[in-house]
Design a protein around this nucleic acid. Structure first.
Lengths: 192, 192
DNA sequence: ACCGTAACACTAACGGTTAGCTCTTTGAAA
DNA sequence: TTTCAAAGAGCTAACCGTTAGTGTTACGGT
């Protein structure tokens, strides 16, 4: 076992962070499409291949910050207080996530994402992965006995709520409105 | 106004069809990733630029067949019998769509789609567009008075149902199970 | 018969991504 | 301490999807 004080890991993390920071700065500065991978690599003073060893694609550079998004949702399910109902816990977490990305400073980034088709597609694909994780977390909760299909369905609905509320004129109200629907859908699956 | 008997249009349609057919054959034969755009163009005896004037991307070649998917959903909403409730009409249509693509002959194509990351992402993106169209159709129905957010939410749920049922072990049963949830969600939004 | 234009073709390039190989650093076994 | 294997990083060169630029042909409306 290696003690977590690796110097390698620190260097690697530093390189990764530097690339992500440089990339975001350039993208916001000149526009996502106007900045090439080679530009980012040059400005971060790394080789193109190094950049791709840290990030799977150009789009991934933009979403490097919001890692843990996935974890927050699954933990909201797993870390509930005993017997706390599922849907309110998820609503609370989704509201927090929506607030986080409709906050002041985040506006330029989300604007950029909506502008670029590639970034939109990448985020949609990310959301699906998150939905799968969430479905697994719901299925694993010992106090919730539902079919696999129900778990996957509710997970998708929750992710939809996040996506839709973010785009709504009044995000908080939209979260409430959509979660009333999700609550009803969940209740309809209560086993006899 | 032009009479629809143009020879040009027939030729164009023939070229388009030939490209799509050749592409699908090659993809199923050698695998999606192993076949390049230049291969398809050469085999269909057209220039690469011609191919791209008919199809927006390599992925679009695969989905050339299922055009009208979008229309079927929006028409299921618009063409309801007077006072026919929304959700059963949508369930009927979704069931038909799911059956259509879980039928015998379609299996190799869907297998190919699930294998390729690019194709999966493309289809997800397509589904989102379909959800937006469906939301517009629901919002435009004169007998359904709901907020914009509710319309968009229900539309997403319906598209989710389609996607999830397709992957389920028993697609028909999954459609029923998910639509019970959607029905409940929709009822919860009934105005006082 | 004539003209405008839509379809198609060709070349060349751009930009994301990867393969192949080398060099250096680092952590740990000998 | 010395040595070694592996991981990080680099370079070159290429592949592949996609597009711009520029003609050329053939059809349809007048």
């Amino acid at each position: 076992m290696t003690v977590p004080t690796g110097r390698r890991e620190r260097k690697k993390a530093a390189t990764r962070k530097k690339i992500a920071d440089v990339a975001l700065r350039l993208f916001l500065d000149r526009g996502y499409d106007a900045v090439g991978i080679r530009d980012v690599a040059a400005e971060a003073d790394v080789a193109v291949t190094t950049l791709f060893s840290h990030f799977g694609s150009k789009e991934a550079l933009v979403f490097a910050q919001d890692e843990g998004f996935e974890q927050r949702l699954t933990q909201a399910v797993a870390d509930r207080a005993p017997r706390e109902p599922l849907i309110p816990a998820l609503r609370r977490e989704v509201r927090a996530l929506v607030r986080h990305c409709t906050a002041e400073g985040a506006a330029p980034v989300w604007h950029m994402i909506e502008e670029s088709r590639a970034l939109r597609e990448y985020e949609e694909s990310m959301r699906l992965r998150h939905a799968e994780s969430l479905a697994a977390a719901i299925a694993a909760a010992p106090d919730l006995t539902r079919t696999v299909t129900v778990c996957r369905t509710i997970a998708r609905f929750v992710i939809d709520a996040y996506a839709l509320a973010r785009e709504a004129a009044e995000p908080d109200a939209a979260v409430d409105e959509i979660f009333r629907m999700i609550e009803a859908a969940w209740e309809a699956t209560r086993p006899a």
